[in-house]
Design a protein around this nucleic acid. Sequence first.
DNA 1: GAGCCGGCAATACGATCGTATAGGCTGAGT
DNA 2: ACTCAGCCTATACGATCGTATTGCCGGCTC
Lengths: 208, 208
Amino acid sequence: MRIAETDPSTRSRIREAALRLMAERGLAGTSIRDVAREAGVSPGLVQHHFHTKERLKQEVDAWVVEQLRGEFESVTVSGSMAQVSDQFCRAVVRFGTSCPELPAFIARTLLEGGAMAEGMFDGLVGLTRASLELVAAEGGLWPGTDMVWASIQLTMMWLGPLLVQPLIERHLDQPLISDAGIERWRLANAALVRRGLLSPERDAVEPG
Amino acid sequence: MRIAETDPSTRSRIREAALRLMAERGLAGTSIRDVAREAGVSPGLVQHHFHTKERLKQEVDAWVVEQLRGEFESVTVSGSMAQVSDQFCRAVVRFGTSCPELPAFIARTLLEGGAMAEGMFDGLVGLTRASLELVAAEGGLWPGTDMVWASIQLTMMWLGPLLVQPLIERHLDQPLISDAGIERWRLANAALVRRGLLSPERDAVEPG
DNA sequence: GAGCCGGCAATACGATCGTATAGGCTGAGT
DNA sequence: ACTCAGCCTATACGATCGTATTGCCGGCTC
């Protein structure tokens, strides 16, 4: 599912260049001439393949959604939460390594709002929600858990750091999207989900 | 610390209009003429007060940082984590209600990167880190806790939903930035920090 | 009351934007 | 061998961009 070399056509090169620049500078900050220069072609060719800037943006969006769907459709909501979390983990690392610009692009998409953002976000929340429902059915959740917020929390645990990846990596001694980086991330998330941050003694000492 | 009426000068109106549009469309998507129209003045006046678009952006940035500093300098890192969380809560609600466009603007700032983004993010992480250190000194944290990731998690618990506020509100039956919305948010965060999502029985049944 | 200064609008200019159009090159089909 | 479709470049046009310049107007000082 690598993006390079699988389709070396000029059209794909243009789309990839557009994705790269749009992730970095946003749609308004990316001109067709910029895309052409980045792809090493003439500006006219860009509009030969994608007639307007809007259509180019739509094709980039569609490609990103396809990547997202491809990586996360393998995440089956079954088994323990640890297993689901592990699948999520692998999906995230596949997703992030397939194209380094994807997290930034998605961050912009989510920020921009619109149907695509809602589809992405609701899809992720729905996935974690379904996973939580399974655990809840076996009595694995605390009674009285706010399922809506719990789903959001679980989603943001994975999505949040991805959105501000460069800022977070300044606090880590390794890339976030790497085997070691993801593992450390996963361990922290697992610890938080399993037992929170405060140790039980704290509860007794400080009920406030 | 309201933004309107405290300084009704034309210059401030222009700055507020710029903040609004830049939060919504980004810097590249906001022209000086747009700002002027939004503020109800002539484009020439915008560059009379702020000589260039870059300077205008800088002043908007500075104002936002000032608001951030003003709201969060009252958060003293002392007392229980619940108290700190409560202070955070109040700061967030003050911050979000003082100017509804601020979260989106900050989201763009963090996404864009740069010194301002790093200053903001590191400041927040540092604040939560200090709070965690205090709790840790009293033995309130689980042994072996990854302090770096715990700080990030705690920060993202409050920052994350703010960044994707419109997407999250679609799953809630109330505005996120409201007394009831914030309280529900705070309860979910408190529960997660205190005990995680999984109940202890789950631990025994499923150690994976 | 003359002079002046700062808030404000209007206009102009060069650059760059998105888009339209026309032309050149190449390879496959007949 | 000729044609023709498709990839690609080049050029052009109108709109809009950021910015510079000019001038109007009201309130201030001396």
